[in-house]
Amino acid sequence: MTSTLVENHFRIGKLPHIWCPGCGHGIIMRSIAVAIDELGYDKNDVCVVSGIGCSSRAPGYMDFNTLHTLHGRALAYATGVKMANPDLKVIVITGDGDCAAIGGNHLIHASRRNIDITTVVFNNNIYGMTGGQYSPTTPTGEKGTTAPFGNIDRNFDLCNLAKGAGATYVARSTAYHANMVKQQVKAALENKGFSFVEAVSICPTYYGRKNKKGDAVSMMEYLKNSTVNVKAADKLPKEKLEGKFLVGEFYKSEEPEYTEEYKKIIDSFQKER
């Protein structure tokens, strides 16, 4: 039996999805749909844009206006969509390679402009679609098919990156914390500006196998046991934070939004007439 959520927000005919058994992406995709559902948006007013990679297949399953673009370019396309029609709720679904490597420039500039786009990164720490190469978020020392001796790159903290570049809502959750993903996506969509939600996913097929992380269940357990909410982190002694990463809302601020600022320019000429 399909749930009403799936029936109402997904393209049933396109399911089942192509993701591997145990992949965390489906959970995150569902959380986005629940967030939209709970906010009561008209589906015709929502445009979901993606790039290339495992995560970027999500829009094909989601029953909204959907745009599957080129590797790394989702935010640039989304910027055009949002500029052309600011009434649309524009969501970008992207991956760690898509948004932080090939699309890194678009990410920092969309953040800087504070254009009203909600970006959700399905961060599985690996290039899955091409078979397991290390990405900008693969932790130093971990392996990928292009890092057979261990990755010597330092990995990005995507939330710090987005915050530093000017995003006005920044949060992190994981595929284990499905409800937190939903809450953060809701808050992101309600933020008038550029919102960045990093949803840490799991890739048992490539990242998990390459780095001996066990099966999908063990990887989920890792997400559960290795995360500390940012609200609790301050009160915890340093040793309790060892080997853990933070989840929760990191940053929120009100700043002028790009398309609204542009509208003021247009309006100034309309008054002149």
């Binding site: 745009l67 370019r73 640039a76 910027t79 055009g80 052309a84 649309l88």
Partner: peptide, 13 residues
Amino acid sequence: IAGMAAIIGGSLA
């Protein structure tokens, strides 16, 4: 690259 991508987005909208 972004300039070209954005006009495709704009045209689709």
